[in-house]
Protein backbone atom coordinates (compact mmCIF):
# COMPACT_ATOMS: atom_id res chain seq x y z
CA UNK A 1 0.00 0.00 0.00
CA UNK A 2 2.91 2.31 0.69
CA UNK A 3 4.01 1.74 -2.89
CA UNK A 4 0.50 2.46 -4.13
CA UNK A 5 0.16 5.73 -2.27
CA UNK A 6 3.62 6.82 -3.42
CA UNK A 7 2.66 5.95 -6.98
CA UNK A 8 -0.57 7.84 -6.55
CA UNK A 9 1.25 10.87 -5.17
CA UNK A 10 3.68 11.19 -8.04
CA UNK A 11 1.40 9.67 -10.61
CA UNK A 12 1.13 12.80 -12.73
CA UNK A 13 4.86 12.73 -13.36
CA UNK A 14 4.87 8.96 -13.95
CA UNK A 15 1.88 8.98 -16.30
CA UNK A 16 3.02 12.05 -18.22
CA UNK A 17 6.52 10.59 -18.58
CA UNK A 18 5.18 7.25 -19.82
CA UNK A 19 2.83 8.96 -22.26
CA UNK A 20 5.62 11.09 -23.69
CA UNK A 21 7.97 8.11 -24.06
CA UNK A 22 5.33 5.97 -25.79
CA UNK A 23 4.26 8.87 -28.00
CA UNK A 24 7.87 9.55 -28.99
CA UNK A 25 8.32 5.88 -29.89
CA UNK A 26 5.28 5.66 -32.14
CA UNK A 27 5.35 9.16 -33.66
CA UNK A 28 8.55 10.13 -35.45
CA UNK A 29 9.67 13.68 -34.71
CA UNK A 30 7.34 13.94 -31.72
CA UNK A 31 9.63 16.26 -29.76
CA UNK A 32 9.93 18.84 -32.52
CA UNK A 33 8.71 22.27 -31.46
CA UNK A 34 5.88 22.33 -33.98
CA UNK A 35 4.41 19.00 -32.83
CA UNK A 36 4.66 20.00 -29.19
CA UNK A 37 3.13 23.39 -29.96
CA UNK A 38 0.25 21.70 -31.74
CA UNK A 39 -0.27 19.37 -28.79
CA UNK A 40 -0.18 22.25 -26.36
CA UNK A 41 -2.69 24.21 -28.43
CA UNK A 42 -4.97 21.19 -28.51
CA UNK A 43 -4.56 20.67 -24.80
CA UNK A 44 -5.40 24.32 -24.06
CA UNK A 45 -9.11 23.80 -24.83
CA UNK A 46 -9.38 20.90 -22.41
CA UNK A 47 -7.07 22.81 -20.05
CA UNK A 48 -9.14 25.97 -19.71
CA UNK A 49 -12.24 23.96 -18.80
CA UNK A 50 -10.13 21.76 -16.52
CA UNK A 51 -8.94 24.82 -14.56
CA UNK A 52 -12.51 25.66 -13.62
CA UNK A 53 -13.30 22.04 -12.85
CA UNK A 54 -10.23 21.74 -10.59
CA UNK A 55 -11.52 24.53 -8.35
CA UNK A 56 -15.03 23.03 -8.29
CA UNK A 57 -13.80 19.51 -7.52
CA UNK A 58 -11.63 20.79 -4.68
CA UNK A 59 -14.72 22.54 -3.31
CA UNK A 60 -16.52 19.17 -3.46
CA UNK A 61 -18.73 19.97 -6.47
CA UNK A 62 -18.69 19.02 -10.13
CA UNK A 63 -19.86 20.64 -13.36
CA UNK A 64 -20.87 18.31 -16.20
CA UNK A 65 -22.30 21.15 -18.29
CA UNK A 66 -18.88 22.55 -19.30
CA UNK A 67 -18.97 21.07 -22.80
CA UNK A 68 -22.43 22.49 -23.50
CA UNK A 69 -21.50 25.95 -22.13
CA UNK A 70 -18.42 25.74 -24.38
CA UNK A 71 -20.71 25.34 -27.41
CA UNK A 72 -23.22 28.05 -26.46
CA UNK A 73 -20.53 30.64 -25.70
CA UNK A 74 -18.77 29.95 -28.99
CA UNK A 75 -22.00 30.19 -30.97
CA UNK A 76 -22.98 33.48 -29.34
CA UNK A 77 -19.55 35.00 -29.96
CA UNK A 78 -19.74 34.07 -33.66
CA UNK A 79 -23.37 35.02 -34.23
CA UNK A 80 -23.03 38.48 -32.70
CA UNK A 81 -19.96 39.38 -34.80
CA UNK A 82 -22.09 40.92 -37.55
CA UNK A 83 -24.08 43.06 -35.17
CA UNK A 84 -21.57 44.38 -32.65
CA UNK A 85 -18.09 43.57 -33.93
CA UNK A 86 -15.62 40.83 -33.10
CA UNK A 87 -14.19 41.89 -29.76
CA UNK A 88 -17.49 42.87 -28.09
CA UNK A 89 -19.03 39.65 -29.40
CA UNK A 90 -16.20 37.64 -27.87
CA UNK A 91 -16.69 39.40 -24.53
CA UNK A 92 -20.43 38.70 -24.64
CA UNK A 93 -19.61 35.07 -25.40
CA UNK A 94 -17.45 34.75 -22.30
CA UNK A 95 -20.15 36.50 -20.25
CA UNK A 96 -22.65 33.91 -21.48
CA UNK A 97 -20.39 31.34 -19.85
CA UNK A 98 -20.39 33.41 -16.66
CA UNK A 99 -24.19 33.56 -16.64
CA UNK A 100 -24.45 29.81 -17.28
CA UNK A 101 -22.11 29.20 -14.35
CA UNK A 102 -24.15 31.56 -12.18
CA UNK A 103 -27.31 29.63 -13.06
CA UNK A 104 -25.61 26.35 -12.11
CA UNK A 105 -24.28 27.84 -8.89
CA UNK A 106 -27.55 29.49 -7.88
CA UNK A 107 -29.50 26.27 -8.47
CA UNK A 108 -27.01 24.06 -6.61
CA UNK A 109 -26.80 26.43 -3.63
CA UNK A 110 -30.45 27.48 -3.69
CA UNK A 111 -32.08 24.07 -4.19
CA UNK A 112 -29.38 22.22 -2.22
CA UNK A 113 -29.30 19.54 -4.90
CA UNK A 114 -26.44 17.22 -5.77
CA UNK A 115 -24.40 19.13 -8.36
CA UNK A 116 -23.88 16.01 -10.48
CA UNK A 117 -27.60 15.65 -11.09
CA UNK A 118 -28.22 19.34 -11.47
CA UNK A 119 -25.46 20.05 -13.95
CA UNK A 120 -26.56 16.95 -15.87
CA UNK A 121 -29.92 18.67 -16.33
CA UNK A 122 -28.40 22.06 -17.16
CA UNK A 123 -26.07 20.32 -19.61
CA UNK A 124 -29.18 19.13 -21.45
CA UNK A 125 -30.66 22.64 -21.24
CA UNK A 126 -27.54 24.43 -22.55
CA UNK A 127 -27.01 21.85 -25.28
CA UNK A 128 -30.63 22.23 -26.42
CA UNK A 129 -30.18 26.00 -26.32
CA UNK A 130 -27.17 25.66 -28.64
CA UNK A 131 -29.26 23.64 -31.12
CA UNK A 132 -32.17 26.03 -30.71
CA UNK A 133 -30.39 29.28 -31.55
CA UNK A 134 -28.48 27.77 -34.47
CA UNK A 135 -31.23 25.57 -35.95
CA UNK A 136 -28.72 22.74 -35.44
CA UNK A 137 -26.56 24.23 -38.21
CA UNK A 138 -22.99 25.44 -37.75
CA UNK A 139 -22.61 29.23 -37.98
CA UNK A 140 -19.61 31.02 -39.44
CA UNK A 141 -17.93 34.28 -38.47
CA UNK A 142 -17.08 37.34 -40.50
CA UNK A 143 -13.29 37.50 -40.47
CA UNK A 144 -11.29 34.50 -41.67
CA UNK A 145 -7.99 36.28 -41.21
CA UNK A 146 -8.58 36.53 -37.47
CA UNK A 147 -8.48 32.78 -37.05
CA UNK A 148 -5.13 32.70 -38.83
CA UNK A 149 -3.80 35.38 -36.48
CA UNK A 150 -5.02 33.43 -33.47
CA UNK A 151 -3.48 30.21 -34.67
CA UNK A 152 -0.09 31.90 -35.14
CA UNK A 153 2.74 30.35 -33.17
CA UNK A 154 4.90 32.57 -30.98
CA UNK A 155 8.34 31.62 -29.60
CA UNK A 156 8.15 28.46 -31.72
CA UNK A 157 5.68 26.80 -29.37
CA UNK A 158 2.94 29.01 -27.89
CA UNK A 159 -0.32 30.03 -29.48
CA UNK A 160 -2.44 32.69 -27.76
CA UNK A 161 -4.66 29.94 -26.44
CA UNK A 162 -1.94 27.81 -24.95
CA UNK A 163 -0.17 30.86 -23.49
CA UNK A 164 -3.41 31.92 -21.79
CA UNK A 165 -3.81 28.42 -20.40
CA UNK A 166 -0.28 28.35 -18.96
CA UNK A 167 -0.68 31.81 -17.41
CA UNK A 168 -4.01 30.85 -15.85
CA UNK A 169 -2.71 27.60 -14.44
CA UNK A 170 0.23 29.39 -12.78
CA UNK A 171 -2.13 32.04 -11.36
CA UNK A 172 -4.42 29.28 -10.10
CA UNK A 173 -1.48 27.56 -8.44
CA UNK A 174 -0.57 30.66 -6.46
CA UNK A 175 -4.20 31.44 -5.69
CA UNK A 176 -4.84 27.95 -4.31
CA UNK A 177 -1.65 27.64 -2.31
CA UNK A 178 -0.84 31.19 -1.17
CA UNK A 179 -4.11 33.04 -0.58
CA UNK A 180 -6.86 32.81 2.02
CA UNK A 181 -9.76 32.39 -0.44
CA UNK A 182 -7.82 29.57 -2.08
CA UNK A 183 -7.34 27.88 1.28
CA UNK A 184 -11.04 28.27 2.03
CA UNK A 185 -11.90 26.32 -1.11
CA UNK A 186 -10.01 23.32 0.32
CA UNK A 187 -11.76 23.75 3.68
CA UNK A 188 -15.21 23.78 2.06
CA UNK A 189 -14.40 20.70 0.01
CA UNK A 190 -12.93 18.58 2.79
CA UNK A 191 -15.57 19.31 5.42
CA UNK A 192 -18.39 21.72 4.55
CA UNK A 193 -19.93 21.65 8.03
CA UNK A 194 -16.63 22.41 9.76
CA UNK A 195 -15.88 25.14 7.23
CA UNK A 196 -19.22 26.75 7.97
CA UNK A 197 -18.60 26.56 11.73
CA UNK A 198 -15.26 28.28 11.21
CA UNK A 199 -17.00 31.22 9.62
CA UNK A 200 -16.33 30.43 5.98
CA UNK A 201 -19.21 31.35 3.67
CA UNK A 202 -19.42 27.89 2.04
CA UNK A 203 -22.41 28.73 -0.13
CA UNK A 204 -20.75 31.80 -1.55
CA UNK A 205 -17.57 29.89 -2.35
CA UNK A 206 -19.51 27.11 -4.08
CA UNK A 207 -21.53 29.68 -6.05
CA UNK A 208 -18.42 31.58 -7.12
CA UNK A 209 -16.74 28.28 -8.01
CA UNK A 210 -19.53 27.56 -10.50
CA UNK A 211 -19.31 31.10 -11.89
CA UNK A 212 -15.56 30.66 -12.33
CA UNK A 213 -15.96 27.28 -14.04
CA UNK A 214 -18.69 28.62 -16.33
CA UNK A 215 -16.61 31.63 -17.30
CA UNK A 216 -13.61 29.50 -18.22
CA UNK A 217 -15.74 27.07 -20.22
CA UNK A 218 -17.15 30.13 -22.00
CA UNK A 219 -13.66 31.49 -22.65
CA UNK A 220 -12.53 28.13 -24.05
CA UNK A 221 -15.60 28.01 -26.29
CA UNK A 222 -15.09 31.55 -27.58
CA UNK A 223 -11.42 30.89 -28.36
CA UNK A 224 -12.28 27.65 -30.14
CA UNK A 225 -14.93 29.40 -32.23
CA UNK A 226 -12.60 32.27 -33.11
CA UNK A 227 -9.79 29.91 -34.10
CA UNK A 228 -12.07 27.78 -36.28
CA UNK A 229 -14.22 30.78 -37.32
CA UNK A 230 -17.21 28.52 -36.60
CA UNK A 231 -19.78 28.00 -33.88
CA UNK A 232 -21.37 24.58 -33.81
CA UNK A 233 -24.02 23.11 -31.52
CA UNK A 234 -22.13 19.81 -31.37
CA UNK A 235 -18.83 21.37 -30.23
CA UNK A 236 -17.58 20.09 -26.91
CA UNK A 237 -19.85 17.06 -26.57
CA UNK A 238 -16.87 14.73 -26.29
CA UNK A 239 -15.01 17.05 -23.90
CA UNK A 240 -16.75 16.08 -20.64
CA UNK A 241 -15.00 12.75 -20.14
CA UNK A 242 -11.64 14.07 -21.37
CA UNK A 243 -11.73 17.06 -18.99
CA UNK A 244 -12.70 14.99 -15.97
CA UNK A 245 -10.02 12.46 -16.92
CA UNK A 246 -7.40 15.22 -17.18
CA UNK A 247 -8.26 16.63 -13.76
CA UNK A 248 -8.36 13.19 -12.13
CA UNK A 249 -5.01 12.22 -13.69
CA UNK A 250 -3.68 15.35 -11.99
CA UNK A 251 -4.54 13.94 -8.57
CA UNK A 252 -7.61 16.04 -7.81
CA UNK A 253 -10.12 13.92 -5.93
CA UNK A 254 -13.76 13.56 -6.86
CA UNK A 255 -14.54 13.49 -3.13
CA UNK A 256 -13.39 17.08 -2.69
CA UNK A 257 -10.77 18.72 -0.50
CA UNK A 258 -7.73 17.61 -2.48
CA UNK A 259 -6.13 18.73 -5.68
CA UNK A 260 -3.60 21.05 -7.20
CA UNK A 261 -3.22 23.31 -10.19
CA UNK A 262 0.13 21.84 -11.22
CA UNK A 263 -1.39 18.37 -11.10
CA UNK A 264 -4.09 19.51 -13.48
CA UNK A 265 -1.39 20.96 -15.76
CA UNK A 266 0.24 17.52 -15.87
CA UNK A 267 -3.10 15.81 -16.48
CA UNK A 268 -4.02 18.16 -19.30
CA UNK A 269 -0.62 17.71 -20.94
CA UNK A 270 -1.03 13.93 -20.67
CA UNK A 271 -4.45 13.94 -22.34
CA UNK A 272 -3.20 16.44 -24.93
CA UNK A 273 -0.14 14.42 -25.92
CA UNK A 274 -2.18 11.22 -26.01
CA UNK A 275 -4.68 12.87 -28.36
CA UNK A 276 -1.95 14.14 -30.65
CA UNK A 277 -0.13 10.81 -30.68
CA UNK A 278 -3.34 8.97 -31.55
CA UNK A 279 -4.24 11.49 -34.23
CA UNK A 280 -0.81 11.09 -35.82
CA UNK A 281 -1.45 7.36 -35.91
CA UNK A 282 -4.94 8.09 -37.33
CA UNK A 283 -6.64 6.14 -34.57
CA UNK A 284 -10.44 6.52 -34.99
CA UNK A 285 -12.22 8.94 -32.66
CA UNK A 286 -14.15 6.19 -30.91
CA UNK A 287 -10.96 4.40 -29.92
CA UNK A 288 -9.67 7.67 -28.46
CA UNK A 289 -12.89 7.83 -26.44
CA UNK A 290 -12.22 4.31 -25.14
CA UNK A 291 -8.72 5.36 -24.06
CA UNK A 292 -9.81 8.46 -22.15
CA UNK A 293 -12.65 6.47 -20.57
CA UNK A 294 -10.23 3.74 -19.49
CA UNK A 295 -7.78 6.25 -18.02
CA UNK A 296 -10.58 7.87 -16.05
CA UNK A 297 -11.96 4.61 -14.65
CA UNK A 298 -8.53 3.14 -13.82
CA UNK A 299 -7.38 6.22 -11.93
CA UNK A 300 -10.62 6.63 -10.02
CA UNK A 301 -10.35 2.99 -8.97
CA UNK A 302 -6.72 3.56 -7.94
CA UNK A 303 -7.82 6.57 -5.89
CA UNK A 304 -10.42 4.48 -4.10
CA UNK A 305 -7.93 1.71 -3.38
CA UNK A 306 -5.48 4.17 -1.83
CA UNK A 307 -8.00 6.18 0.21
CA UNK A 308 -9.94 3.29 1.69
CA UNK A 309 -7.05 1.02 2.55
CA UNK A 310 -4.02 3.28 2.84
CA UNK A 311 -5.08 5.03 6.04
CA UNK A 312 -6.71 4.30 9.35
CA UNK A 313 -10.49 4.74 9.40
CA UNK A 314 -11.67 8.18 10.36
CA UNK A 315 -8.46 10.07 9.60
CA UNK A 316 -8.04 12.59 6.84
CA UNK A 317 -6.53 11.32 3.61
CA UNK A 318 -2.76 11.39 3.36
CA UNK A 319 -1.82 14.95 2.55
CA UNK A 320 -0.05 15.98 -0.59
CA UNK A 321 3.40 17.08 0.52
CA UNK A 322 3.67 20.10 -1.75
CA UNK A 323 0.40 21.50 -0.54
CA UNK A 324 0.72 23.62 2.62
CA UNK A 325 -2.94 24.51 2.53
CA UNK A 326 -4.37 21.13 3.40
CA UNK A 327 -1.76 20.64 6.09
CA UNK A 328 -2.60 23.84 7.91
CA UNK A 329 -6.30 23.23 7.68
CA UNK A 330 -6.66 20.57 10.37
CA UNK A 331 -6.48 23.04 13.27
Amino acid sequence: MRFLSLASQYRVVIILGLTLIISALVVPGYFSASTLGLGLDRAATIGLIAIGLTVLLIAGQIDLSGGAVFAVAGIVSVMLQREIGILPAAIVGVLVGTVAGAINGALVVGLKVNSLVLTLATMLIFRSLAHWITNSQPVTGTDIMLSLALAKIYLEIFTIRSALFIVFIVLLHFWLTRTIPGRNVFAVGSNPAAAKESGIASDRIVFLGFVFAGTLAGLAGVLQSLVTNTGSPVFGSELTVAVIAAVVVGGTRLEGGRGSALGTLGGVLTIGSLTIAMEFQSVPAYVQQVVSGLILILLVVLDRAVTTKGRAPGTRPALISDNPVTQGEST
Binding site: G293, L294, I297
Partner: peptide
Protein backbone atom coordinates in the same frame (compact mmCIF):
# COMPACT_ATOMS: atom_id res chain seq x y z
CA UNK B 1 -18.09 -2.81 -4.53
CA UNK B 2 -15.35 -0.31 -5.34
CA UNK B 3 -17.49 2.62 -4.23
CA UNK B 4 -17.00 4.97 -7.16
CA UNK B 5 -19.41 7.81 -7.79
CA UNK B 6 -22.15 6.29 -10.02
CA UNK B 7 -22.28 9.15 -12.50
CA UNK B 8 -18.53 9.14 -13.07
CA UNK B 9 -18.40 5.34 -13.26
CA UNK B 10 -21.30 5.01 -15.71
CA UNK B 11 -20.04 7.96 -17.77
CA UNK B 12 -16.63 6.30 -18.11
CA UNK B 13 -17.94 2.77 -18.71
CA UNK B 14 -20.54 4.13 -21.14
CA UNK B 15 -17.84 5.93 -23.13
CA UNK B 16 -15.71 2.80 -23.22
CA UNK B 17 -18.64 0.52 -24.09
CA UNK B 18 -19.88 2.77 -26.87
CA UNK B 19 -16.37 3.04 -28.27
CA UNK B 20 -15.93 -0.74 -28.28
CA UNK B 21 -19.32 -1.29 -29.92
CA UNK B 22 -18.43 1.28 -32.59
CA UNK B 23 -15.03 -0.30 -33.12
Amino acid sequence: YVGINPIIATLGIGTIGLGIVQA
